[in-house]
């Protein structure tokens, strides 16, 4: 396994852990989706793969990248992991780039400083990568500042930078959420092409279940820091077993779907909401008394599991 997260629990000051006993795996050439509302802990999982943890976090469990535990490795190994094995693509490309440096610096910096490549080679590689992500005039873009190009182009730059070190694993944290719809589609297509060409493992984080279902091989649905359902994308989409997954699907409209939009009642839980039982119980239309009393164990369903008493 390329990435294997085992029983990851992270506590950082709130009254409940940010993540509780999260396990997931990403293989070579596999796209794994992580879906959930904001605050569900999606980004924390991605960041913990790079050991970018909140200040003062208490962490248990393991995060293995190619068999090495990220959470316990030494500083040199960690820098090597960040530099050459795992790359991350972020939600807002505009804030991912240093606004006072040229785009070329952003691209070559990592290759020169962390991978020790000579400057001329790094530059040639950067031009090559910019062309590979479909940017028309790479030499011009290298000279420009982030504020001079559009958000879609910047996200391509960020993707190019992520590919600079030929990583095996790509973490895409809401990589398309801040872009407008047409750019979003282009970026998704680009990610898919690159992932297929290079046989990358990818952890694809989004709040959009439809997008995840269309893009990923396997999807984990996250609620209040726990994985409530984990299924192959197609099955999850056609036959959601956890009420929360069903609720997520129900609240996004689809063309030609005669059913009315049904929003999930209530609000996403904060870090100060503590649960004895199923965290979704207060908002769940199918909840029974037992739901609030004990945490539901994952139950095997076709292709994966769902953590719900009603399954």
């Amino acid at each position: 396994m390329l990435l294997s997260v085992e029983g990851l629990t992270i506590e950082a000051g709130g009254r409940r852990p940010i993540l509780r006993e999260v396990s997931l795996a990403v293989g070579k050439g596999e796209i794994v989706g992580l879906v959930g509302e904001s605050g569900s802990g999606k980004s924390t999982i991605a960041r913990s793969v790079l050991r970018l943890l909140p200040n003062g976090a208490k962490v248990s469990g393991r995060v293995l990248v190619s068999g090495a535990d990220v959470l316990t490795m030494g500083p040199a190994a960690l820098r090597d992991l960040r530099a050459s094995q795992v790359s991350m693509i972020y939600q807002d490309p505009r804030s991912s780039l240093n606004p006072v440096r040229r785009i070329g610096d952003f691209l070559t910096e990592r290759m020169v400083l962390t991978l020790g490549r000579p400057k001329a080679k790094a530059r040639a590689r950067a031009l090559e990568l910019l062309a590979a992500v479909g940017l028309r005039d790479p030499a011009l873009i290298m000279r420009q500042y982030p504020h001079e190009v559009s958000g879609g182009m910047l996200q391509r730059v960020v993707i190019a930078a992520a590919l600079a070190a030929d990583p095996a694993l790509l973490l895409a944290d809401e990589a398309t959420s801040a872009l407008d719809v047409t750019t979003q589609a282009e970026t998704i297509a680009l990610l898919r092409r690159i992932q297929a060409e290079r046989e990358l493992g990818m952890l694809f984080i989004t709040h959009d279940l439809h997008l995840a279902a269309a893009f990923c091989d396997r999807v984990h649905v996250l609620y209040a820091g726990t994985v409530v359902e984990s299924r192959p994308a197609k099955e999850l989409f056609e036959d959601p077993r956890h009420p929360y997954t069903a609720g997520l699907l129900g609240c996004t409209p689809e063309l030609g779907d005669p059913r009315p939009i049904r929003p999930i009642p209530g609000r996403p839980p904060s870090l100060d909401d503590v649960f004895d039982g199923c965290p979704f119980a207060p908002r769940c239309p199918q909840a029974v008394d037992a739901c609030t009393e004990r945490l539901p164990e994952p139950v095997a369903v076709s292709g994966g599991f769902a953590a719900c008493l009603e399954v």
Binding site: L81, R82, A83, S87, M88, L97, L113, T114
Partner: peptide, 8 residues
């Protein structure tokens, strides 16, 4: 982002 890319 810079830290995540392994810069010292």
């Amino acid at each position: 982002v810079a830290r995540a890319s392994g810069l010292s």
